[in-house]
Amino acid sequence: MNSTFETPSASLLARLRRLRTSGRLRRLTTLAQVWTLVVLFIFFGLAAPNFLTPRNLENILRQISTLAIFGTGMTFVLLLAEIDLSIAANAAVTAMISAHLYTNLEYPEPIPMIAALGTATLLGLISGISSARFRIPSFMTTLAVSLIAGGLTTYISKGRVITKISPWAAFLGSGRIGGEGGFPVIVVVAVITLVIGYFVLRYTRFGRYVYMTGASKTAARLAGVNTNRVLIMVLTICGFTAGLAGVVSMGRLHSAQPDAAPGFLIDTIGAVVLGGTSLMGGRGGMIQTVIGLLIYGTLRNGLDNIPQIDIYLKEFITGVVLLVALMVNTVFAGKAERDRTL
């Protein structure tokens, strides 16, 4: 693309570039999150015999892929200092609609896929419009939408699990590129989602509007940004990624469940925030989310691989490590930029 603007002085451009690369490097190495990941990795590498095998590393990636798709949308939402509590229910209804259309009503693909993702996107849009136009906190609208989605799932499924799913969903969730022993498709889907999210947030005007609105809604409005539209778009994006995650997760489990998996919501928010994206908006991004996901995946998988740990204690330990990691992160973040206000 050719620029229509005069080029700024070469020295200024060079400084901008240096600031960008050195800033990014410095940020990454001083980021407590990165060290948390390294420490966890070394710890489990030493403590769990099977942790560092290629097979297990692939496991970790497959395990966090669903979360990564959820997390992409959630990163947008948290950057805006909003929240979406409906993602797990949204994912469940999406999977159920796809399975119901394909198995019970025998529509061929792509109809079930389009209907499912369309519903997910629509649910996000509904949260967005009701939050933006009626100024209801997204905490409440997405909670209501979560009930709507859950109710729809129950109504469609009549409480039954559907175990036959479309080959498209099966391919996305548990297919492998190059047949048996190839690279898992689910990881590819997750990576593509994250990369698109990264590009949109970092390079597009819309991405800048998300950061601006999250950092200061008033400042964004004064600059002519339609903050309502940004909110609607962000919740719609999150609805779409929740739906995609629902379909992929169904493909991984080879069934559509009549209940939402409540773990998805907590795990997604946990992973994104652990990565360093602030709940207060304006700070964080897709790189942070990737790091958060890796920490989360390492922790969960690592605990599985230490035979001495009582499996009934796993949840408890995960919680404790999470809390400590969050505190360490805040302390380190605070050191870099301390708020001197008392």
């Binding site: 620029s3 603007f5 005069e6 080029t7 700024p8 901008l16 390079y203 597009t204 005007r205």
Partner: peptide, 10 residues
């Protein structure tokens, strides 16, 4: 769609 940093600086 994509504001380039160099243009912004300019």
């Amino acid at each position: 769609l994509v504001p380039r940093r160099e243009d912004e600086l300019a």
